[in-house]
Simulated scan of single mutants.
Amino acid sequence: MEQVTVWVYMLRCADGSYYVGKYQGDDLETRISEHNNRQYSNSYTSKRLPVALVWSEWFSRYDAAVAFERQIKGWSRAKKEALIRGDWGGLQKLSKRGVRPSKMEKKFPSS
């Protein structure tokens, strides 16, 4: 199997929402610039500019990157924020079936 560079990344949009995407290439900053320059005029991010990179990870296999991108897209906001913080314990806690952020966490988010 040929080795490639595929980035899975998360952007924070101007409205506070998160966008998760993938990019096959070496220069992830180019991809972020494309988002901010509205190169994709009908995309989710084009209506929520500017965007900022908050997390990224590269993969050497395209199929692994696609699988992880899909997984993250299905996560709750709390899980995405735990990933951004690198809070592996919190991510594990939130990954347990049925675990939801407490009412206090909803009222007083950490970010």
Rank of each mutant, 00 (worst) to 15 (best):
F59M: 03
Q71E: 12
W7D: 07
Y9I: 03
T30Q: 10
G89Q: 13
K47C: 06
S46A: 15
H35C: 08
Q24P: 02
D27A: 10
A82D: 14
K96H: 14
Q39E: 15
R61Q: 08
L83I: 13
K96P: 00
I84C: 11
M1P: 01
Q24A: 13
D27V: 14
M1V: 02
M1E: 03
R85F: 05
W55D: 15
S76Q: 06
S60P: 01
E34T: 07
A64H: 03
Q71N: 02
D26R: 09
K93Q: 12
R77F: 05
T5S: 09
I72D: 04
S60F: 06
L91I: 01
Q24R: 14
M10E: 12
D87Q: 11
K47R: 15
N42R: 15
K73R: 15
Q3G: 02
F68W: 13
S60G: 04
L11R: 14
W55T: 08
Q3C: 04
D15C: 13
N36T: 07
A64P: 01
R48P: 00
G21T: 05
K96D: 08
S17Q: 15
G98I: 02
Q24F: 01
R70G: 13
F68K: 14
Y44G: 10
I72R: 00
P109G: 12
V8C: 00
A64V: 01
E69V: 03
L28P: 04
R85N: 04
S110V: 06
Y19E: 13
A78D: 11
E34A: 15
L28R: 04
D63A: 09
S95V: 02
M1I: 01
L49S: 12
I84G: 08
Y19A: 11
P101A: 13
P109H: 13
A78R: 12
L49G: 12
R97F: 08
G25F: 03
A14Y: 00
L28T: 05
N42Y: 11
M10K: 08
G90L: 01
S33R: 11
W7R: 05
D63L: 05
S60Y: 04
V54Y: 08
C13H: 02
Y9T: 05
V51F: 09
W55F: 15
R48I: 01
K96T: 13
V66W: 02
N37E: 15
Y62W: 03
W58C: 08
V4L: 04
Y18C: 03
N36A: 12
C13D: 04
T5N: 06
Y62C: 04
I32K: 09
Q71P: 00
Q3H: 04
L49F: 09
T30Y: 10
L49I: 09
